[in-house]
Structures are given as structure tokens and as C-alpha cells.
Amino acid sequence: MKFTVIKNLQKDSAMSLILKGFLFFILLYIVSDIFVMKSSFGISADAVSSTLFGSEEAYIDPINESSFLEFWHTQIFFIMMILLTLSAVFIRVAKRSRNIITNALMISALISLFSLPLAFYTSKFFIDIYVISYFLWHLVAIYMIFYSFWKLNARSV
């Protein structure tokens, strides 16, 4: 977290390069996450519904509670770590709208994580909320990554 106290990141070429490398890996994670989720859990409302509750037509068994809780638990940890580090970099380089963007990112991620167990235990209605908030936080995160890249290449940060 040393980068949070460096006065001019542009002048510190090593730290700037480290942050760019880090941002690139977060971008890779975010994009890969979409592909992995597409092939495993599902990224459309129908696919998520089939995973959670099964599908007789497609001969898919519903996910058991134990596997679901393990999946949810793991997701929470990875998302919180990714978003904490990404927001730390973004807050350091961004000047305007950083509170709004950070709020949008965190709230949409929290909604997606809250809606998963609500969908599993209470109502299918929450699947739509999960899918929308899942894509929302991914889009906001990708925006933050590219914005941070751009700012790190700017004259002074």
C-alpha cells in the first residue's frame, strides 16, 4: 500500500509499472471470471436457475446446499480482496467521481453476493438481481481498471 502515500506516481516509474502490472492481472481475473462462471455456475438467469434448482429438461441436478455455501463463501473472499485492492489504486489515481464510482462498485458487488443466498433459499426472483448486479460490478471494475491505466500514463497523478 506504499503507493497510497507516494506524492507523484508518474515520477516513481517502478511503482507506476508495478501498479500497471497489478491492474493488468485484475483485468485478467475479471474477464476470466466471466468465462469460468459461464461454463460452471452460469451467467444468464436461466443458466443460474438450472444450476441452483436443476432442470428436468436438461437433466441437470440442483446444486446441493454444501456446494452452494462453499461457492458463496469463496466468492465473497475473492471479491472482497479484488475490490479492496482495485479501489485502493483507483482512489489514489482518480480525483473526480471516485466516491460515486467506488460506491457503485461496492454496492453492486454486495447486492450480487446478497442476492445469491436469497435466490437459493427464498425466491427465484433474486436470480435476476444477481445477474444484473454481477455484470454491473464487472463493468464498473473494468471501467476503473482502464481509467487507472489512463491516469497512470497521464503527466502527474
Partner: peptide
């Protein structure tokens, strides 16, 4: 900075969920 405080508060919310 206020923005970092915001980031930590959200981290605490995620921790609670975890």
C-alpha cells in the same frame, strides 16, 4: 482520506458477509 475510509467500510461489510 475520505475515499479510503469508504473503501475500508465496504471491506468491513464484506468481512461481515464472510
Amino acid at each position: 482520506q475520505e475515499a479510503y475510509k469508504l473503501s475500508i467500510l465496504y471491506y468491513l461489510a464484506f468481512s461481515l458477509l464472510l
